[in-house]
Design a protein around this nucleic acid. Structure first.
Lengths: 141, 141
DNA sequence: TATATTTTTGTAATCAGTACAAAGTTATAA
DNA sequence: TTATAACTTTGTACTGATTACAAAAATATA
């Protein structure tokens, strides 16, 4: 759960290039931020966090980069809070637990759906995306 | 998955009163809509759907009612699509599958996490809310 | 170097959702 | 009843996240 501040730039560059994007400083910075801050930041938190070191950075670039990374599955969009998209650099299958008091979002492993007992779960939502039977057939998948 | 147009008004009234709300025509209409349209409508879709029959209905009333119902667990907020809250009158534990082609959202049972094979699952997100260990201890829960 | 391509930036626009106060309803008390 | 209080609805204005878009900047190619 602790953010790893010392993620190597290498993996960020790799992530960007593997998504078919040129490894520009801004894109590397965004990828690096997401990889090193596993606290599920919003696009705006990422923007603010990078603004000091990259004063000319624009919000649009952050959004564009995040969407491109998410489209390639390199980063996950987390929709726990209504109306707010958060981003997760950890792409291993896991659940997100949001505390209704402090609003923090915790990662929780979910092997065999046995959730840790310390967490007092009141609501649960499983969201899947993919191709439905009709669309699957339409595309002969 | 087919919407049941003929949901009795009775259960809608019951739902509203059980949430501690006065059963006003507007509130009953919203509850009835959610119960009879299990296609995960947005607040705006509910508003538009009811506007014809209730011409003076305001969006704010729809939002207020939905939030009150959701706060009491009578209705579920579904956050599959980023930036858009949908509502679900079915409160049985189940998963939501969104087709990336047609954008429809399907209900999927999840007993023992065995999802139906017809659906071609590409991403999965489990979201839980509740009280984290710290907040739990702070409130001696 | 000149030119084409890509990327970034900044502003304006959009859109879901919220705040809030006035107007309308319903309930309660005299 | 009538007056008064409590609640509900409405409509408008506002907020805040996200998107659209075109100009400017950077990078690659000829």
């Amino acid at each position: 759960m602790t953010d790893n501040i010392h993620t190597s730039t290498g993996s960020a560059v790799k992530m960007v290039t593997e998504c078919g994007l040129r490894p520009s400083p801004q894109r590397i910075a965004v990828a690096e931020y997401v990889l090193s801050h596993l606290s599920h930041p919003t696009a705006d938190e990422i923007f603010t966090g990078l603004k000091e070191r990259y004063p000319t950075l624009s919000r649009t670039t952050v959004y564009n980069t995040l969407h491109a990374l998410a489209a390639h599955g390199a980063v996950l969009e987390v929709n726990v809070e209504p109306g707010l998209t958060r981003f997760d650099g950890c792409t291993e299958p896991h659940a997100h637990f949001m505390c209704v008091d402090c609003s923090r979002i915790f990662d929780i492993g979910m092997s065999r759906m046995e959730f840790p007992q310390e967490f007092d779960i009141s609501t649960m939502q499983v969201s899947l995306t993919g191709h439905c039977p009709e669309c699957r057939q339409a595309h002969r998948r």
